[in-house]
Design a protein around this nucleic acid. Structure first.
Length: 518
RNA sequence: GCGGGAGUAGCUCAGUGGUAGAGCUCCUGCCUUCCAAGCAGGAAGUCGCGAGUUCGAAUCUCGUCUCCCGCUCCA
């Protein structure tokens, strides 16, 4: 849509007031809180009539770019419920359930398996009780290194004398100081935080029937790796794509739909030869960045950020985040990771099935070789992308005179806009209404534009209706006036510039197709 | 989960013990020409929910739910 590219923007995403987005979303029917009539359900959200169109458009654009416009990616729709062993093999049962310890004084939170303490030889406090030092670390050595300076302050103790013990294993935590604020006896008992939702398979609530609701869609892809390989005869490199719901009992939720407990993912697992992993990671970084830009996000709103070594998940060899400048700061839209062969290896081990790609053309022998591919994973949040598109598109145009209200407009890309065209009779007189309804019907027909959502609105003044459409991001309004009855021509009014052009009704569909670029 | 702030009409908010309000939105009608216009009429609130105190609670007390802001994590 060439006409909108030079449009003046008044707000950048970081200047947008999230409360105004939330208010608009509710007022116009994009996003509602779940179970609102019962007081709401914590961090669960519903998409209203406009929201479901927008979200479906996001998913459709992703599916087109990732699956339908490529010959090396196929789709999948795996079930939410899977064999519990999947989540043991993937590391989620171990990794997603952490005992955590809080400091009641400074409110810091620590992973119980990363929080260590050690007695400092011979040092006693005023009451004659032994004194402890604390430190964080994934290993006792790391913790000891952190404790050393603290211990030295108390005594000329050398490193070899520090023997860290996990705080959670200590009989009494009363004398353990908080490693952050130093307050003694402020640490809570370790409490289990399990991020996976549990339920029961079958009507009997027996412990042996416990299964999980998937915390990510990726494992459905890995579990079906061999099925897809043998049924679709894909050759390396190739990918399997899937969108779908995932569930996590997040400790901290919030920022509207940004972090919720039920959310939707769009994930690609792209299988490559191990030695080509880094090259394909770079390739997908550019592809995914380009996708967001093509759908209208401003380049300034996006950045790629490489994970620090310490930041990497247990499975990742390398990882980048696609980040968006949300009103509260930069935050992740999508993670793009090189997962190595972790997942296929784990599932092969756990299931006893061979999960490998057989390449007859390579290998030292004549029979070819089995390769366990590396996997590059662009894993995006549908709800996050939808929210980012909303925020990036949101604009408030100051009124020229200064007396009217600001014009609120969602400058959504036409491919994402919930409604593509609104047909508006200038007045509610019957001949105008009839003509406008006919035009709307014609524009909805497949021959006009495939799958266009077309709105018809004749309530209240024309200016009010334009603003209403602006606020929900409708790119074009078609206005039928009294002259239209005679000259069979209508006005196309553009959302971003408010400019108008008159076209014959016979050429309307073609004119809109060209402008929408769909 | 912990700390702070907040829940009154669809939205933004006023109302501090005595009959639930305003602006905008929304709906109906009038208006022959275009950007939240005008006129007339109308709809809409278990004051988040539940107890308690009181002759009487939107208002005071307690509990609870939800949202927003911080803290560790993730798509």
């Amino acid at each position: 849509m060439a006409t909108t590219q030079s449009v003046t923007r008044y707000l950048s995403p970081s200047q947008v007031d999230l409360d105004k987005i939330a208010s608009l979303c509710k007022r116009r029917g994009f996003i509602f809180q779940s179970s609102e009539i019962y007081g709401g359900l914590n961090s669960v959200w519903d998409y209203g009539p406009l929201g479901v169109e927008l979200k479906n458009n996001v998913k459709r654009a992703w599916w087109r770019a990732m699956v339908q416009e490529r010959d090396d990616v196929v789709g999948l729709d795996a079930a939410i419920l899977m064999h519990p062993q999947v989540w043991h093999a993937s590391g989620h049962v171990a990794g997603f359930a952490d005992p955590l310890i809080d400091c009641k004084v400074c409110k810091q939170r620590f992973r119980a398996d990363h929080l260590w303490a050690a007695f400092v030889n011979g040092v006693k406090d005023k009451d004659g009780a032994p004194v402890l030092v604390t430190g964080e670390g994934s290993t006792p050595e790391e913790a000891a290194a952190e404790m050393a300076p603290r211990a030295k302050k108390l005594l000329k103790a050398s490193l070899t004398e520090i023997k860290p013990v996990l705080v959670k294993d200590l009989a009494d935590r009363d004398r353990v100081p908080c490693p952050a604020c130093g307050a003694v006896g402020s640490l809570t008992e370790p409490r289990m935080f399990n991020l996976m939702f549990k339920t029961f398979l079958g009507p009997v609530e027996d412990e042996s029937a416990v299964i999980y609701m998937r915390p990510e869609t990726a494992q459905g892809i890995f579990a079906n790796f061999d099925n897809v390989l043998t049924s679709s005869r894909m050759r390396l490199p190739f990918g399997i794509a899937q969108t779908g719901k995932a569930f996590r009992n997040e400790i901290t939720t919030g920022h509207l739909t940004f972090r919720s407990r039920e959310f939707e993912q769009m994930e690609l697992e792209y299988f490559v030869r191990p030695e080509e992993g880094e090259r394909w990671l770079q390739y997908w970084l550019e592809q995914r960045r380009g996708w967001y830009l093509k759908l209208g996000l401003r380049p300034d709103s996006l950045r790629l950020r490489q994970h620090e070594k310490e930041e990497l998940a247990h499975y990742a060899k390398d990882c980048y985040d696609v980040e968006f400048t949300f009103p509260w700061g930069w935050a992740e839209l999508e993670g793009i990771a090189n997962r190595g062969d972790f997942d296929l290896t784990q599932h092969a081990r756990s299931s006893g099935k061979k999960l490998a790609y057989f390449d007859p053309s390579t290998g030292s022998g004549e029979k070819g070789e089995h390769i366990v591919p590396y996997v590059i994973e662009p894993s995006g949040g549908v709800d996050r992308a939808t929210l980012a598109f909303l925020i990036d598109a949101y604009d408030e145009e100051p009124p020229p005179a200064g007396t009217e209200e600001a014009r609120v407009v969602l400058r959504l890309h036409p491919a994402l806009a919930p409604v593509k065209v609104a047909v508006l009779p200038l007045s509610r007189k019957e001949p105008l209404v009839n003509m406008a309804r006919d035009i709307a019907r014609e524009l909805r027909a497949p021959s006009a534009g495939s799958g266009w959502a077309v709105a018809y609105d004749d309530a209240q003044s024309i200016g009010r209706r334009y603003r209403r459409q602006d606020e929900q991001g409708t790119p074009y309004c078609v206005t039928v006036d009294f002259q239209s009855l005679e000259d069979k021509a209508v006005t196309i009014r553009e959302r971003d510039t408010m400019s108008q052009v008159r076209v014959p009704v016979a050429e309307l569909a073609a004119a809109l197709r060209e402008r929408l670029g769909l």
